[in-house]
Write a protein that binds this DNA or RNA. Structure first.
Lengths: 235, 235
DNA sequence: ATTTTTTAATCAATCGTTTGATTGAAAATC
DNA sequence: GATTTTCAATCAAACGATTGATTAAAAAAT
């Protein structure tokens, strides 16, 4: 296989136990690691192969070169995020369109909780975040891939949840911007981790630190939802 | 000069009108542009020199190589941020320690306003943000440079402002985390601009869009301050 | 036996750096 | 004041090393 599989195709391919599947898994894992740390241009195919314990040529064979491996990484990331967000994404839009404000708010906070846990504790989250920060903003078509695959369907559902929780219209601009503000809070507190650790005097983010982070973001986002609810007439 | 000047030294050097000062300015400007777009590893010294209309050897001559030019860029950034944040930084700690809650909140919102305007409209902000996220946050010693030069003194003062505005103790962990949440909101809405433009259906961030962003962040941060003030006894 | 996968060796291109020559304007000498 | 010396600065050219890609043969899997 030389072209880029979709996230769903990729899931099946990587789940099989053929020798090629293992090589592909190892190469993607290794590429994710190196791309996230040294960036795409800063990573050599040799170091990727070495970490994966595979041959350099296997990158060309399985992914049609370095660029193809990068595309596979993007799809792999989309797959991973899709799994984590399945709680939100798996529900059809029609399922969440009639939630009560209280139910919607509970769902939002539940989702926030999952996102924080994933970004702060998942070993792969660091690689994924590093990878996205360094590479996604670079190529328009790769931004498109992630946007349509993950971001837009996720945001659509979160917007509906916010709309139900605050009484604001789903198409409201301030609602959309508020969601960016919300996501920004929990993403930044993860990707600025070196600064957070220094500032807080922490050695690492363990259970106690995770609880503190969840507590403050919980309060902040609840306050944001309250503010957005002002002037709206809940049923 | 082959070693890295401090931001203050750098300011004097770059302000002079000697031939070498112009070359250094051009090289830093060019490096900032390329580093911010294609990353450090993805940028060749040849492209830096070409954009700066300088010779390749001038990088080794003035900055002791590509890595030295990167360090100079970091100091230049520290200098720039220091200028933008001078409203907050120039005040001594003792000056803001006795502000009333209302005065402190006004100062906070004024600072937020400046940060949003800078990040959203300054032509150099995109390069600075891209450069810092892609390269700086992964090198411990460069994190140290920016942390001690800019981040810590800035955060110390913002923490005092937050303490005055909310009645929380200055050493409160939740206060420190809340400030990260606040900064995350306005930084993310800038660095995820490609996603923001797509999501909002905007072509660019002009005066109208800037006003919308300021409005929602204004409300969000005010709500956060209100939440933090709960249970505290303002004088 | 046929296909799939891995391997080592090699390719042209590009990387950051270094070199020695050259410039032009101060500094020193006469 | 004229000449010489000095030195920071720039330049084109070339360096060795490393890059991603390619090749053909060996090995493994089916």
């Amino acid at each position: 296989m030389t072209n880029s599989p979709t996230p769903n195709e990729l899931r099946e391919v990587l789940a099989s136990d053929t020798p090629s599947a293992k090589t592909k898994r190892d190469l993607i894992e290794s590429a994710l690691y190196h791309f996230g740390r040294e960036g795409y241009a800063g990573t050599s195919t040799r170091s990727i192969a070495q970490t994966a314990k595979a041959n350099i040529a296997s990158i060309a064979y399985h992914f049609d070169g370095k660029a193809g491996l990068k595309r596979a990484c993007i799809n792999f990331i989309a797959m991973s995020i899709g799994d984590v967000m399945s709680v939100v994404l798996n529900r059809k839009l029609s399922d969440i369109e009639h939630l009560s404000p209280e139910e919607a708010r509970t769902k939002i906070l539940e989702m926030i909780d999952r996102m924080i846990t994933f970004t702060q504790t998942n070993k792969r989250a660091e690689l994924v975040i590093g990878f996205m920060l360094k590479e996604v903003l670079h190529s328009p078509e790769e931004v498109d891939t992630l946007y349509h695959l993950i971001f837009e369907p996720l945001m659509d559902r979160v917007t509906v949840l916010f709309s139900r929780a605050t009484g604001q219209h789903v198409a409201s601009d301030e609602l959309k911007l508020a969601i960016f503000a919300m996501i920004g809070q929990l993403l930044y507190i993860r990707l600025a981790r070196p600064l957070v650790l220094k500032r807080m005097g922490w050695q690492a983010v363990g259970p106690d630190e995770l609880a503190q982070i969840k507590s403050i973001l919980h309060r902040s986002i609840n306050a944001l939802l309250d503010e957005l609810s002002k002037g709206s007439n809940h049923a």
